[in-house]
Design a protein around this nucleic acid. Structure first.
Lengths: 219, 219
DNA sequence: CAACGTTTCAAACAGCCGTTTATCAGCAGG
DNA sequence: CCTGCTGATAAACGGCTGTTTGAAACGTTG
């Protein structure tokens, strides 16, 4: 039991520190001292710092993908071949995203990590995530395709990433934004509040009119 | 003239490397060796690595804020007190963003840097940017407020940041996304192309219907 | 009890980091 | 001519990095 204790204590500490400062800016010494664990424990249990970073992600993404697949299974059974409306798809994804970290730690940490995975160099991480969790994303986008048949494929691809940017950027920079909002509007904003505000914006963005075709290329 | 040459050579090299790898992951030795400059030159001309980072941003943001203020002056004169439509505001901001880096380097670098400023730890940078360039942002948001009088202040605040996230996230992760898009749809995407696609999405997001009020708080 | 594999621990490793120092070249004005 | 100043340069500074080592402590199994 002692080694499990050490492993989880390292993971718990590491995910918070990574989320706060990024990967390169968080040293193993900072992690191990704050976790009250010997420095060598990380290399003993995980092998390397890279492997620790991946393990931190796996602890969030494994249960997420499992639940999300199950959710999509239920939806597909329920709609029985008919396309699932975009709002329903987004609603269920949001619910799954909210459920998973609630059991462990704050949603904020999860979102910060996702944002870092995109923006920090860490090439190994992008590869790892794509390799391990690409399938659930592919499945989701295929369902979105059936929900928005009027959109050209390329347009939908870009709009999905626009919306991904909206969500990840907002939730990962949440602390800073929340401070400003609280100061300017005296209003405390919870994550659930933010998701409530995000939904109509995302739906409207996906359903926006098509852009005018590039000039000087008209037939 | 020799020292100017050294300074600009450092800045040119640093901005590219920062954009590629982030701040912490880019060492002064990497910068100076690639720029063919002595290691001590950075500390001599800029004082510290932090100051170099700020100088890299200033070289983009100074001309941007100047031009954007001028653009807003023209618009305000043209509309003479009447609110400037949201589309016009966005259109002009996009044009200014496109103009400035075109004279120096790629827009991609500029956008990557903006994204990093938000997501990398670097507390000093956020403070520096807010202090030096907050005024133009405040002016812009005030014009947006007049363009969208029906939006509650808090809602507009959040939607502006949603859209900021969309743009910065997309353009800063552009290389990776472009690779995927090119592979999947065989279609090469220029930055101008992307901005053309972004516009209707951003407008629709800002004009989305208001979210339903939080449950169980109804009067 | 003894031998075992597993986990912890302190110490050391080589390497890179940002910054500082001291020396030297080139050029200006007295 | 020489004194001062600006900038370039090589070398060194202390400190922090991820990783490895070998020995000690542990609990389990024979």
């Amino acid at each position: 039991m002692a080694q499990t204790d050490t492993v989880t204590r390292i993971l718990d500490t590491a995910e918070v520190l990574f989320a706060e400062r990024g990967f390169a800016e968080t040293s193993l010494r900072t992690i191990t001292s704050k976790a009250k664990v010997n420095l060598a424990a990380v290399n003993y249990h995980f092998g390397s710092k890279k492997a620790l970073i991946q393990a931190v992600f796996a602890r969030y993404l494994d249960p997420f993908t499992e639940r999300f697949h199950a959710t999509l299974d239920t939806l597909e059974r329920e709609y029985d071949g008919r396309p699932i409306p975009l709002e329903v798809l987004l609603e269920n994804m949001a619910r799954t995203v909210l459920e998973v970290p609630a059991e462990r730690n704050s949603l904020k940490v999860f979102m910060r990590l996702l944002g870092l995975a995109y923006t920090q160099a860490q090439g190994h991480l992008r590869g790892y995530i794509q390799q391990h969790y690409g399938s659930v994303f592919t499945r989701f986008t295929e369902l979105v395709r059936r929900a928005t048949p009027e959109l050209p494929d390329a347009e939908r691809f870009w709009r999905l990433h626009f919306m991904l940017g909206t969500v990840i950027f907002t939730l990962s920079g949440l602390d800073a934004l929340r401070d400003i909002a609280e100061k300017d509007y005296g209003e405390h904003v919870s994550v659930r509040d933010l998701i409530r505000r995000l939904r109509p914006v995302v739906v409207a963005g996906m359903n926006a009119p098509l852009p005018e075709p590039p000039r000087a290329v008209a037939v």
